[in-house]
Write a protein that binds this DNA or RNA. Structure first.
Lengths: 233, 233
DNA sequence: ACGGCAATTAAGTATGACGTTTAAGTCACA
DNA sequence: TGTGACTTAAACGTCATACTTAATTGCCGT
């Protein structure tokens, strides 16, 4: 186990959490506190606090006289950034990436439309900067730099929408984009069409053309969706 | 304090959480565990576990030698059902309702489109049943019964979309609809146009007409949005 | 078979002691 | 006077242990 960063709490959490989301502890199985104490060689305090956190993510439910029960996946707080991270690291990564991309497909176009109406000049400038950054790094295997601009671009759109719920999905987008770059198409340069679309979205937002920003963003997301289906149909 | 359901842990959590989301403890302010022990008359154990949960919601961050710091609102896990509930109960309810309704506006039409493609016959029947239930209870102040059908209808659409991220937004929709009924228009009967739209969505899904289901659902959500703006512009 | 009572089990809470981190204060020295 | 290293102490973090509470199991008697 390479899990020894920070303290016992984080170590146990980052070990137990993924173990649950990956199905290593299937729904319905029970974990007793004492057993976990021994397994991780920590005190009850730590185990109990970890359990409380997992409980708050609806990964487990603790009941007296029975133990800590793993809940079915439908109950999980799938919007918790940690749950997302754990699932993306696990075996059902493809399925998870698909779910998240569909979510993007729903949210980002609407967010772009809102951004076109109310983005500040500073945010418009930021958008343009990152779009151009994507253009500049789209060739020659500068994938990490490209990824940085891509993530920043989408984060800015979500933030500029002025909706806090959208803004908090920045982490989700980052997880999706990072996952895609790191694990699937690390070899290939980005699709030039997608790069162009980003530039045009930045333009549309700057010109307060909500309908166009929405439509163009929908095309970006649709492209991302298609890409997934091509890679793992 | 009427907060005494279940145990000390829940009691303290349900008291401290809202106190934070309502701004009673503004971002940047610090809470020391010892102080909290006395304030709630419970042991360190309980306080520490509550803090860990609040920390997992990104409401607070605990640091040695300084205490538990309240984080700025941008950091909060606004998708956590409890955070949503606490904020809806607090003073920025209108703002929160608006955010959530915009989220619905983005997600539900797409979910309805997906549902039209892959809803099971059982789910179609469920949709029809609840749509008709809405019709039957839409007049004569049967608001509670109507609300139940409305929530169930939207939950079914989200579930039938086959996307786990969408499915988990059922709680959000319930919170929004409940909030609207209970606190804003409790007196008035539902808008007949909205009722009709629900029936037509059920039809479209049953006939696998994705585009129509999407468009009709968009109209429902737009109507909900307009209603909000009318009531608190 | 059934219903109630008791025993058992595992989580929940309380408390004291100690370790660890780190902000902040202090003192010496240039 | 200012800077740097050193010391201190405040608050969280962890451990160990005793005790409390609730729920399941199962026994027993009817």
């Amino acid at each position: 186990m390479e899990n020894q960063g920070q303290g016992p709490h984080a170590r146990v959490l980052e070990s137990l959490g993924p173990a649950i989301t990956s199905g290593e502890h299937p729904p319905g199985s029970v974990l007793r506190t004492e057993e976990l104490e021994q397994r991780f060689e920590v005190s009850r305090t730590v185990i109990r606090e970890v359990i409380r956190v997992l409980e708050s993510m609806h990964l487990v439910a603790s009941r007296r006289r029975v133990g800590v029960t793993v809940l079915p996946a439908e109950e999980w707080n799938v919007y918790d950034p940690r749950v997302i991270r754990w699932r993306l690291a696990g075996s059902d990564r493809p399925r998870q990436l698909r779910s998240l991309t569909v979510l993007r497909l729903a949210v980002e176009p609407v967010a772009a439309g809102l951004a076109a109406r109310q983005a500040t000049p500073a945010q418009c400038a930021e958008l343009t900067e990152h779009a151009l950054g994507m253009v500049a790094t789209s060739r020659g295997g500068q994938l990490e730099a490209y990824l940085g601009h891509d993530v920043a671009f989408h984060r800015t759109v979500l933030r500029a929408s002025g909706n806090e719920m959208f803004a908090r999905l920045g982490d989700v987008v980052e997880a999706v984009l990072t996952g895609r770059t790191r694990h699937q198409v690390m070899f290939a340069d980005p699709d030039p069409a997608a790069v162009t679309l980003h530039v045009r979205v930045a333009e549309a937002v700057r010109e307060h053309d909500a309908a166009r920003a929405e439509e163009l963003t929908r095309r970006i997301a649709t492209g991302a969706m298609a890409e997934l289906d091509i890679l793992a149909p």
